[in-house]
């Protein structure tokens, strides 16, 4: 029963991998398939593999995929245009042919009554697996340990990037800063915080310099790029105008004036 519930889900999820455009979605669909497989392993009297499938495959390998996806760029999606001529059609035809042949052939096979693992699992599946693994397959097991070490070292080698310049120290950074100030006049100190000496202390309001002019470098470049910077004096005029429309005395200071109103925060209104 479990099988008949899970099998359609797995096939649908697997087919989804073929068609979704974003890699993250594919990874999620793959997770569904793997988890379903874990359940099937449990059904098939393989509790150890059930655990391993969840821990190693879904937990470790798939997470590794997601890490890499993050490094590469989560929102990078595949183009749907096929670049190799005839590749998609041929792949579909050959894939369908292979599937048809395999399914046809397998469906003609009569497997007979399953022996079942009750006898083999007597005394516990994990103990029996360990018995076999450390007796008959001990050399293969040792070989896989070597393989895993090799893989770890290989990953380190591949991921390692050779440093071509000496690492910068605090002293060298400070010296560089002073050199820049001497050569180009770049301010050596930290940038002023936004909202200082301004009518508002919001991050989109630049600080006022002692002479009353606005310090443009005090607001985030991101906000500058979005065009949502407000100058302190302009904001004050806006509030007065609103109050006048409300029939209040514009000279009376409101209690809650730190929040920028939605209509007032657009650049069009500033003009």
């Amino acid at each position: 029963m479990t099988f008949w519930i899970l099998a359609p889900i797995m096939v649908a999820a697997a087919l989804g991998i073929l068609f979704v455009r974003k890699a993250v979605h594919a990874a999620m669909l793959l997770a569904i398939v793997m988890l379903s497989l874990a359940v099937l392993y449990a059904v098939l009297d393989a509790p150890f593999l059930f655990a391993v499938q969840i821990i190693v495959y879904t937990g470790a390998i798939l997470m590794l995929f997601l890490f890499v996806l993050m490094l590469v760029g989560v929102d990078a999606s595949d183009s749907v245009v096929e670049t190799i001529k005839g590749q998609r059609a041929l792949a579909t035809i050959l894939g369908l042919a292979l599937g048809a042949v395999l399914v046809t052939a397998l469906s003609q096979v009569t497997l007979g009554t399953a022996v079942g693992l009750d006898e083999a699992n007597a005394g516990g599946n994990i103990e029996q697996l360990a018995n076999i693994l450390f007796s008959r397959y001990v050399f293969a097991f040792e070989a896989t340990s070597a393989l895993l070490i090799t893989a770890a070292i290989g990953a380190m080698v591949l991921a390692h990037r050779e440093r071509l310049t000496p690492k910068e120290t605090q002293a060298s950074l400070a010296a560089q800063r002073m050199r820049d100030y001497a050569e180009t006049g770049k301010h050596p100190g930290p940038l002023p915080a936004p909202g200082v000496y301004a009518r508002h202390n919001a991050v989109d309001t630049p600080a006022l310099l002692p002479d009353g002019s606005a310090a443009e470098s005090s607001v985030s470049r991101v906000l500058v790029a979005r065009g949502v910077i407000r100058s302190g004096p302009a904001m004050a005029d806006d509030i007065d105008e609103v109050r006048r429309q409300l029939g209040q005395d514009p000279s009376e200071m409101p209690e809650t004036s730190g929040k920028s109103g939605a209509p007032a925060s657009t650049e069009e209104d500033v003009k």
């Binding site: 590749q87 050959l94 292979l98 052939a105």
Partner: peptide, 22 residues
């Protein structure tokens, strides 16, 4: 130079082997 193209021929070969076995 396209790996997928090579993989396609692999699949074709595998299909042939399966058919031959059958």
């Amino acid at each position: 130079g396209f790996v997928r193209s090579y993989a396609l021929s692999l699949l074709g070969g595998a299909l042939l082997v399966v058919l031959a076995l059958l």
